[in-house]
Design a protein around this nucleic acid. Structure first.
Length: 119
DNA sequence: CATCGAACCAACC
DNA sequence: GGTTGGTTCGATG
């Protein structure tokens, strides 16, 4: 059951890409530095498929204002990164204080669910 | 731990 | 009009 949004003076319509993009931006910016969240976590909150979240972040216009590097896979692997490759992504996270294990995965204790951030 | 399949929407060819 | 993506999750061996 997807979200419903209403533009000003416009009939309510089914939320679509740009709308979800806004939501994701807001959510990602809630994640504090030194912590990471997952695609699935966001997806559940918005009621969409995790795949869509990936597509959203890829379509993200401004990676600077929306730190998409703070979103990783649920098993701790980095996932992809459109700009600069995974190496850059890992460096950024390390810079923020996120810990990695020998396998190159984010340690569990650094991963938070967005649900927790709201609660 | 590794593999398989299904769910979902826009972009791309 | 078909394939692909920054994926996930449960089931199975």
């Amino acid at each position: 059951m997807p979200l419903l949004v209403s533009g000003e003076g416009e009939a309510p319509r089914r939320a679509s890409f740009p709308d979800y993009l806004e939501a994701v931006k807001a959510i990602v910016s809630l994640v504090p530095p030194g912590r990471v969240t997952t695609y699935g976590s966001i997806a559940r909150l918005l009621g969409v498929s995790p795949r869509l979240v990936g597509a959203l972040l890829k379509a993200n216009d401004e990676p600077i204002v929306v730190p998409c590097h703070r979103v990783v896979r649920s098993n701790g692997e980095l996932g992809g990164y459109s700009m600069g490759g995974p190496g850059v992504k890992r460096r950024l996270l390390e810079l923020e204080g996120v810990g990695f294990d020998e396998e190159g995965r984010v340690r569990r204790e650094y991963i938070v669910d967005v649900a927790d951030l709201i609660a």
